[in-house]
């Protein structure tokens, strides 16, 4: 079964969603991310959806749940790359993505995490 790669950049893990997520794949991905956070002692998680053509309620909930779980472990998540049509669709659906910060793109997402890190780790 195919897996979604999770990249590490400094203290941050980057997850780029590209393929269509099946239920089973999504649950495994969630577990993979949390394990990787623990193993790498990451301080932030970026979820990039710039390459996907839709975010339905299943995917939306998966993103939101993952962010909440990561937060429980002390890691903040940023969703980046939400295209205009997906933003409109999420609003029409009435789906609110709880627990996840948002930024326009990967660069801005990393910046946001960095700023949050500075706030949380004074002098660090």
């Amino acid at each position: 079964m195919e897996r979604v790669p999770i990249l590490k950049m400094g203290d941050t893990l980057i997850l780029t969603l590209q393929v269509e997520l099946h239920d089973e794949m999504a649950f495994r991905l969630q577990e993979d991310i949390l394990k990787k956070i623990y193993e790498t002692r990451a301080r932030g998680l970026v979820i990039d959806v710039s390459a996907v053509n839709l975010v339905d309620s299943f995917m939306g909930r998966m993103i939101s749940d993952t962010a909440v779980m990561a937060r429980t472990m002390g890691v903040e998540s940023v969703l980046v790359g939400v295209q205009p049509d997906i933003a409109i669709t999420l609003q029409e659906m009435g789906l609110e993505l709880k627990g996840v910060h948002t930024a326009l793109n990967l660069e801005k997402g990393l910046e946001l995490l960095q700023n949050m890190g500075e706030v949380g780790h004074e002098g660090g």
């Binding site: 053509n53 839709l54 975010v55 339905d56 299943f58 049509d85 997906i86 409109i88 659906m93």
Partner: peptide
Amino acid sequence: VRTTLIITAVS
């Protein structure tokens, strides 16, 4: 935009 709305509703 409307194509994305349709695909999402179908999903």
